[in-house]
Design a binder for these strands. Sequence first.
DNA 1: GCAATGACTGGTA
DNA 2: TTACCAGCCATTG
Length: 104
Amino acid sequence: MPMASEDFDERVLAVVEAIPPGRVMSYGDIAEYVGSGGPRLVGRVMSEYGGGVPWWRVIHTDGSAPPSHDGEGLALLRAEGTPMRPGGERIDMRRARWDGVSAG
DNA sequence: GCAATGACTGGTA
DNA sequence: TTACCAGCCATTG
């Protein structure tokens, strides 16, 4: 193991996989959820293992679509019933933001 | 150790 | 809404 950040990486991946359909989380939210690093670290992890998790449920804090794609993640979010803003180009974070508790 | 880079975020214009 | 700047932490050369 080249570094000891695997704990952080696994936390991030675990949270992303825990995001229920129709909900999203921002990089900063995940960073606080795992309680370590920062939004830059979350983005770094996604770039490494994002291909094994619902990366499209991880977007920016302003509701802009996920990177490395152009409409792909956006289409998936819409298919899951994610609350979109009037225009359909961005996500309604006010309603789509996941609190980490699908029961509340 | 220093400098540059990156799937980020918030404030100001 | 878009654009620019500063802060944040870890990886890489």
